[in-house]
Design a protein around this nucleic acid. Structure first.
Lengths: 232, 232
DNA sequence: CAGTGGTCTAGACCACAGG
DNA sequence: CTGTGGTCTAGACCACTGG
């Protein structure tokens, strides 16, 4: 008699084992939930939960009526946890520091307006700031903020609290997009980051909206050594 | 009487609405599952599923006995889907091309051995290759492969099929890590990528193991324009 | 210790899409 | 049309952990 797998994690482990051991080959159809439930000696809901988890990880493909099959070329899902800079720094065991460089109102450059989907003549708030880890530059950000999200709150000029942190607590968003790329630091950027001009740096562009209304657009340059890490 | 939310997605939407509308403030404790189930007119399991999903997204923090509270500073989860290069290129509607540059056996440099956790004198297979999109350089990879994973298979020298693709189908892995950083292209790298020397490029370092045994270690340089995008 | 989330179950119905 | 996964339910027990 086969062993019993009475909880969904045990079922998941067994499923993963079979995939890795190639008992179920890539592209192959696996038994349906009801059969597996019987084989594993548990309820179908338990099998469902396990298979759903594995599928979310990209190793299984599930379709109604078609059944469940092992992914031929699994798409790796790398999840990046993007926290507030302060937390990111403190989690590394370093001291966090913040320095506001500039604060003003103005009309953003065309590309920013377009990306945020706001009229090109709409004045917004601009904040330039530097985040520090152990007194060394960690990230340099240029940010445009929709003034609407600050309505009703006492004037906040981000001289003590970073916009990064303030917005997350006061300006929720419903949608967002984020992209990473590599870029050569300009002289200015290099000065702030304390690195040679033209150094290769990681850039994060982040846009957020709240129910269709732009919240903020930020371009972050990380110090040259910065790495984004994650496990598969 | 409150509206009915009879399926977990409806419950999830309502929960998200309350968080975004700040009916439940950041850091605040929300009602327990049983109460919500009664309010929503559904089973506790349904509420559980919805809250679990929201928590997985980082907007809720759940702890036994302590209850469920709205995250004060939600950690954004950006999921990058990392597929086979061919699929990545074809999904963009471009023509995929592959060119093997070099194939040989040898002992990897120390840092590679250390990262892969293999003895420093262990000979491995080295493959250098270029992936193309519409005949333009897309990604340039330097890869070390544990010869063990190719045991029993007919000799594969990756002259037609990329290691990227072959390994995914023939060499499953149980664990892996992946990291992204920015780097200045050396003259060599720039030549392969068809860009000026010292261009800033995105680098992906990827390591995989199968039950503790190293499978492959690869360093990929993407063409300068490359961006990693994802929605929040 | 007691309240919370975590999970399992058996059964049921439904939505979808393959054949 | 029919088999598959997707989901809901009511009830139960468990595991953890805060107070």
């Amino acid at each position: 008699m086969t062993a019993q797998f009475r909880n969904w994690q045990a079922v998941q482990d067994e499923v993963l084992r079979r995939i890795h051991a190639r008992e179920w080959m890539p592209g192959e159809l696996i038994p349906n939930e009801a059969d597996l439930a019987q084989e594993f000696g548990c309820a179908r809901a338990t099998v469902n939960r396990a298979l759903r988890a594995v599928a979310q990880n990209g190793l299984l493909e599930r379709r109604r009526k078609a059944g469940t099959r092992v992914a031929a070329q699994p798409v790796a899902k790398a999840t990046l946890n993007i926290a507030v800079f302060r937390k990111e720094v403190e989690d590394r065991g370093q001291k966090y520091g913040y320095h506001r460089i500039e604060y003003r109102r103005g009309v953003p450059p065309m590309p920013v307006c377009a990306a945020m989907k706001v009229p090109a003549d709409r004045p917004m708030i601009f904040v330039r700031a530097l985040h520090l880890a152990d007194d060394m530059p960690y990230a340099y950000e240029n940010r445009w903020i929709n003034p609407d999200v600050m309505r009703g709150d006492e004037e906040e000029e981000f001289d003590r609290v970073s916009a990064n942190e303030w917005l997350l607590e006061h300006a929720p968003y419903t949608d967002g997009e984020i992209s990473f790329s590599a870029s050569s630091a300009t002289q200015d950027e290099a000065d702030y980051l304390g690195c040679p001009a033209a150094s290769a740096v990681m850039v994060m562009d982040r846009l957020t909206w709240n129910s269709g209304a732009a919240v903020t657009s930020v371009r972050v340059l990380f110090a040259p050594s910065h790495k984004l890490r994650t496990v598969l």
